[in-house]
Design a protein around this nucleic acid. Structure first.
Length: 322
DNA sequence: AGAATTTGACCTTG
DNA sequence: CAAGGTCAAATTCT
């Protein structure tokens, strides 16, 4: 455990240094920045390996270890699982960051604002991914499946025509997202897309209702992307967010110009170009659940002292205008 | 006024 | 048939 703590502290230290040096990077060749990012990634990679080893050992024995009590005030199995999952998410989050600095730095260079030290906009939302299908040994926590490509069937015998959309959703990916501690805590942090709620349903056996959202552009661009949001029963500070379908609104002027790292994964096919950034630009007002690298580290190490295992507000002021 | 949300009814799936 | 998912009218918000 101590080994893991040291390695993760080292990684966060490197990330912190990189963050601090970022304003001065504008005069440096980009490959210098790449090397720095590589160092950070390697450090987190090592820490993650250790954590996954510890988790796999835990999963085999299902007994308490020194690891869980340090993070959690309650020791029941579900809390244990959730805490481990979210902690792993922090590590994953740092990996996902790798996809962003390059975009950000490029954007900043292109916009010639890096000299203006608008570091505020380098803050990134804290949407955390638990894992991806078949990628790691915590995949048991993730539901991710393809549902086939059966075409929808028109309901011809009823006055109300409706396509079967469920089978058309070829992509389904579920992640765990911590609830924001300020602003509207009823919703998980934004993910850069604009969603419109179209339904809510009480789910059998769940304490909290499930909210159904679709892309705001679903009519204009025939965008098929949807998401389901539901609070986790045993920890209301965590949302289970299921994404379905693919965004086909990339070229929209209101579509995000950059996506969170986990959304750029191949199975969601979210890569590709983005249009001009407007209000949906993740680095402007739409991104209100901001977390800095250094604060992620602080939140992570303060986790155990928090009575509700939630993420502390990092920039309370930035969320008040919601 | 238009956009977004709510909510009960309806539809699909297993 | 039950449960989950979606529709669409009513309502609320901006």
């Amino acid at each position: 455990m101590e080994e893991f703590i040291n390695s993760i502290k080292h990684a966060f230290g490197l990330a912190r240094n990189l963050e601090l040096e970022l304003p001065n990077m504008s005069n440096q060749p980009l490959h210098i920045l790449c090397l720095s990012i590589d160092d950070v990634m390697k450090a987190f990679n090592g820490a993650k390996e250790r954590l996954l080893m510890m988790m796999s050992q835990q999963d085999k024995t299902i007994t308490t270890s020194s690891f869980v009590p340090m993070l959690s005030s309650t020791h029941d199995a579900t809390q244990h699982a959730t805490t481990s999952m979210v902690m792993t998410s922090y590590i994953d989050y740092m990996f996902q960051m790798q996809q962003l600095p390059f975009d950000h730095v490029r954007a900043l260079h292109e916009n010639k604002i890096i000299g203006g030290v608008d570091i505020q906009k380098l803050r990134y939302k804290g949407t955390l991914e638990i894992g991806e299908k078949g990628e790691r040994d915590v995949e048991c926590y993730v539901r991710s499946k393809s549902e086939g490509n059966v075409q929808g069937i028109e309901a011809s015998s009823t006055p109300r025509l409706r396509k079967s959309s469920r089978k058309n959703d070829s992509v389904k990916k579920t992640i765990m997202v911590p609830a924001p501690q300020v602003g509207n805590t009823e919703l998980p942090p934004e993910d850069g897309f604009n969603w419109r709620k179209y339904g809510q349903k009480e789910i059998l056996g769940s304490m909290y209702p499930r909210g159904y959202y679709r892309c705001t552009h679903h009519k204009l661009y025939d965008c098929k992307a949807k998401k389901l949001i539901q609070r986790v029963d045993h920890n209301p500070n965590i949302f289970e967010v299921t994404y379905r379908g693919e965004h086909t609104c990339h070229m929209s002027s209101t579509a995000p110009s950059s996506y969170p790292g986990w959304l750029t994964s191949a199975n969601l096919s979210l890569g590709g170009g983005g249009g001009a950034s407007t209000s949906s630009d993740p680095f402007t007002s739409k991104y209100d659940g901001d977390y800095l690298v250094a604060d992620l580290a602080d939140a992570m190490f303060n986790w155990g002292s928090s009575s509700n295992n939630s993420i502390e507000p990092l920039f309370p002021d930035s969320n008040e205008d919601k």
